[in-house]
Amino acid sequence: MPPASPDDSVSAPKIKTAAPRSYAPAASSEIKIHAKDVNVFYGDKQALFDVNIDIPAKSVTAFIGPSGCGKSTFLRCINRMNDTIPTAKVSGVIEIDGQDVNLKSVDPVVLRSRVGMVFQKPNPFPKTIFENVAYGPRIHGLATGKAELEAIVESSLKKAGLWNEVADRLHQPGTGLSGGQQQRLVIARAIAVGPEVILMDEPCSALDPIATARIEELIDELRSQFCIVIVTHSMAQAARVSQKTAFFHLGKLVESGSTEDMFTNPRDTRTQDYITGRFG
């Protein structure tokens, strides 16, 4: 079942740490996600080759690499969204807190309540702002009454940094918000079920620079409570928000390590070429 009432994680008001503009402190040592020999096929076409990586808890891990290299594919393995693609076949082991997510006994519905996801294009449901955030708690039966539901919605919107902007129009359509607000609404929606991991697939690629900066700040704030994995094709963004970086190329995980190391001292020539802009 989903974790206990998200309230306890909600009550502590977040003190905003000064957003680091250079490299954030090193990743925590606790491993949240462990992937071993992950291969993915779409029909006959292999999209991922033997991916091995450890993703630390309570920190931001960035996946970078040229488009088509399999970043999204790997991200979708973590919450088993590849199940929704009939041709996709996944092999290998992906463990969250030591439990293999691909086991038959793991219900993807429960898994996805632990692993939230934010997509490239903001995709609020055609419902009110309130109903968007209440969607997850409702389907997972997290709130026992109206008051509790309202509390979850409010705290999720606050954590997503959207509360002040929408408090007076909770019952207007979520689709009426600006792109950046929509993306934060979608993040609030994901937070509302109390996940442990949040996957973000190029969450800023449809946003303007100001909205992007806002989301990056938010990601930095959320780091203390969630394990965040973000796909980005902006090297600068990876450098700004992540503590760990993994570089994918042609379906292979070329190298991964602390973000600082990756950007100052890449081991592989392909990584070097990519981050210096020689291809991509």
Binding site: M81, T84, N123, P124, I139
Partner: peptide
């Protein structure tokens, strides 16, 4: 749009 369905599945909806 398929993105709406994906969004819902990603929330753990059946």
């Amino acid at each position: 749009p398929q993105t709406l369905r994906d969004g819902s599945y990603a929330m753990g909806a059946t």
